[in-house]
Design a protein around this nucleic acid. Sequence first.
DNA 1: CGATTGAATGATCTGTTTTTTATTCATTGA
DNA 2: TCAATGAATAAAAAACAGATCATTCAATCG
Lengths: 208, 208
Amino acid sequence: MNATDMTRQKIIDAAKRRFAHYGYGKTTMADVAEDCDMSPGNLYRYFAGKLDIAEEIARAASIRTVEELSEILLDTGRSAAERLHDFLFHDLRETFHALEKDPKLVEMAQIITTERPHFHDEGLEREREVLSRIVEYGVLSGEFRVSNAEYVAEMIQAATLKFSYPQLFSSLALDRLERELEGVYQIITAGLRAGVAGESAPQNLVEA
Amino acid sequence: MNATDMTRQKIIDAAKRRFAHYGYGKTTMADVAEDCDMSPGNLYRYFAGKLDIAEEIARAASIRTVEELSEILLDTGRSAAERLHDFLFHDLRETFHALEKDPKLVEMAQIITTERPHFHDEGLEREREVLSRIVEYGVLSGEFRVSNAEYVAEMIQAATLKFSYPQLFSSLALDRLERELEGVYQIITAGLRAGVAGESAPQNLVEA
DNA sequence: CGATTGAATGATCTGTTTTTTATTCATTGA
DNA sequence: TCAATGAATAAAAAACAGATCATTCAATCG
């Protein structure tokens, strides 16, 4: 890690402490610069802007989450269905606990999601890679009958979207969310075991 | 319908035209009163307030949607799986087209959802009743192996939430949404055919 | 001479004032 | 005497002025 990288990391660390404590809006570039013993103008040699610093922090958190999710793939003692369960519940519990532990960082992540749409897509894609490998493992082990793991992973993400968005469940208790996720998980798992076709055009069954 | 009901309907009709054209915020109670040939104060003999008029309009639209969805139950020529497909796609297409045809009424409905949380829960419950009967029909016909139709209907709603919230898909094209919904529908249907347990406590599989 | 500063600039935010509007109610009319 | 009015009142929204802050860059420093 060269001097530039070290300075960038120093800025990220300072900004993260400020964002976590005061929130994104209440933190100024002057605050962050002061914490780093540099002038506000100098921050712009290392980052394009304030949003870019926040995006970097959010992306690191997203990557760490996916690294944790990836560990599910290493547990040889668990079936594909159990791994899928571990994945979905870990995702839910992590998001829920983040809301309790670092509400201001969650708020910052939501600002980035709104201002930088591609950031969110990237995060979904990272998680989908892990999900896809869980589904592939299920196909290999004979548990799931699926012809396109990547596509099915995308469908699972669409079906469990409710449990990934803090703003969609902030008014619900964790045990209620877990009950709902368990029910959705049961249907998904039963469907994967029974066999799901690959991607196909939507059937215009309505027009008769 | 007595005189009071007729006056209420007149107010609703006038307000709806205004809300559809100018939006909820840009419409004043004075505007609506004028359209009804009455004074602003008189509106309060028929409705508690402006939000209540808007809630009534949104509720009527929700009821009409559910009435349309209920017609799916009458088509004796279609299987339970086909009816479920009809239900989910009708819901998506209606929501999507409402965004195009009456964006300001959709915006009004979103204001009501925010200001009157119970309104949204009522709407979900109405749709769930239809969904539940479709699932029951599937159980009766032998297509679905489900022990608690009401519970499964709730899970299907959770799994398809993405396709009911305009703000969650307004940036996506209808054909892309239909492709995703088709995929989620295939997994759900396969799961229901294969058999889904009833409501149970979430398994703490993670803690090992 | 390249790295850094910190004031200048343009954009955004905040607090105050003004205007508008939802709601109420004393008065009037049918 | 009850239904309705429309001005009054309270609340909310909009406009405005000043303050704040993200970002830029001419000048300075190491």
